[in-house]
């Protein structure tokens, strides 16, 4: 039936518009962008080791890749945990086709938010380190599959994480490992400088591949030389991301259903009691 899809897209659209019209949300768009642009600014005179290419310029695409992973993993899981606690999910459950529409809406709003953040970082970023970055025809083609695949490989996993953790105050358990991944995935510092086993770990997760994919889109092909195996490894990028997409899409419906089945008025009330008790402390 068309309705859950249409209602979900409408829902996502309304929520996306809301993020663009209130101060707190605008701040959460701009603040990371400012931090990242600051980082790039101070890197502008440094060079990618072994080349004369600006380190700032090569970091910008990596950051965009990280942003894609953050959106899918962190924003999705965070919103799911918070909205389970505040009763949004229970309301969805009490509405016909509400759960499917809720999830579709979540994908739309998080996808939209991620793209908005991407643009907010990309446009001023290009002005700062513009020279050397350009997107060829094959680069656009790459973006056309990389961005959707980025969402597919991270959002379902984010939904699974968000379903497992019940308490928003335990979100650190999700966030810290993700920041750990950023550190070892060659986003701010080349992965080639990491010990071999850490390189192995990093290559298991989408974060590294999203950074690599975005670098391959924006950087000149000569810079593939400083990557692992001296290549952009498009096939491997596709393979690893597709693996996570399949894994996530296989797990998410089952885990989401299990999570949704437990939602009830008393479950939400119990969480509210607990939240109020914690806030008082």
């Amino acid at each position: 039936m068309m309705t859950p899809l249409r209602a979900g897209v409408a829902r996502g659209g309304i929520e996306l518009r809301q993020t663009l019209t209130n101060g707190i949300d605008l701040f959460t768009y701009l603040f990371p962008a400012l931090l990242l642009l600051g980082t790039i600014f101070f890197m502008r005179d440094a060079h990618v080791p072994g080349t004369t290419f600006s380190l700032g310029a090569s970091t910008l695409p990596s950051i965009l890749g990280m942003g894609l992973a953050f959106g899918g993993l962190m924003t999705v899981s965070q919103q799911l945990v918070v909205e389970r606690e505040d009763g949004t999910l229970l309301r969805a459950k009490a509405t016909p086709n509400g759960m499917s529409s809720y999830l579709i809406g979540k994908a739309v709003v998080v996808g939209g938010m991620t793209l908005v953040s991407l643009l907010i970082q990309l446009v001023p970023g290009l002005l700062l380190v513009g020279s050397g970055l350009h997107v060829s025809a094959s680069g656009w083609l790459m973006l056309a599959w990389l961005v959707p695949l980025a969402f597919l490989s991270t959002m379902p996993i984010g939904a699974v994480l968000g379903s497992i953790f019940e308490n928003p105050r335990n979100m650190g358990l999700i966030i810290l490992p993700i920041f750990g991944l950023v550190a070892i995935s060659g986003i701010f510092y080349p992965i080639t400088a990491m010990p071999g086993w850490l390189q192995g770990v990093a290559q298991l997760f989408p974060m590294y591949w999203l950074g690599l994919g975005m670098r391959s889109v924006f950087l000149p092909d000569s810079l593939a030389a400083v990557e692992l195996t001296h290549s952009w490894r498009h096939l491997e990028t596709f393979g690893v991301l597709a693996f996570w997409a399949v894994l996530g899409l296989a797990l998410a419906p089952w885990i989401l259903r299990r999570m949704a089945r437990r939602e009830s008025g008393s479950a939400v009330a119990a969480r509210r009691e607990r939240a109020i008790a914690t806030m008082g402390r």
């Binding site: 249409r6 809301q18 009763g87 309301r91 016909p96 008025g265």
Partner: peptide, 28 residues
């Protein structure tokens, strides 16, 4: 079901929320 709300849909406007939730029932 009238649920005890807490702070869900806080950013939504009253009319917008009711209009949106109403669309779920239109097919029925």
């Amino acid at each position: 079901v009238v649920l005890q709300s807490w702070r869900d849909h806080g950013k939504w406007r009253v009319r917008e929320l009711l209009k949106h939730l109403g669309t779920y029932y239109a097919p029925y």
